[in-house]
Amino acid sequence: MHYTIEINGAQQSVDIDGETPLLWVLRDVVDLKGTKFGCGAAQCGACTVHMDGHPIRACQTPIASVGNGRITTIEAVGESRLGKLVQEAWIELDVPQCGYCQAGQIMSATALLTRTPNPTDHDINEAMNGNLCRCATYTRIRAAIKHAAEAGRA
């Protein structure tokens, strides 16, 4: 099947089986490898991208279901003010260890700050619970979200 979807502001045409997860279209067709494969079961969050600004798991999103949804990936999230602030907070606080989950973390964190500019610990727990970090950098992820929120208020 032929699908045209909007990824990072550009229309992308792909000819592919409609069941194919968005994750593999991003990684292996459109060559955007920042979105990661971790579990293939929506259990780890490494593949989190935005559809119309809201976090979804790309590994459980059939390409046929994307329709007119606007997809944003880690490669372009920094084009938004909040996305950029989140990335800068991650650098400032030196959050990552291995770094593999962090694209997904940043996508979830940016979506959180978009709807909740001043998140409490509870808000962070709920919004970030679907994103595993095997290195357990949670302490710094939490701090970096607050850091970005503060920068957003400035």
Binding site: T48, I56, Q60, T61, P62, A64, S65
Partner: peptide, 14 residues
């Protein structure tokens, strides 16, 4: 993140 905020998910797959 799979079943979506509108509960409509991604039929016929999900």
């Amino acid at each position: 993140t799979c079943h979506r905020a509108n509960g409509a998910a991604a039929p016929p797959y999900v």
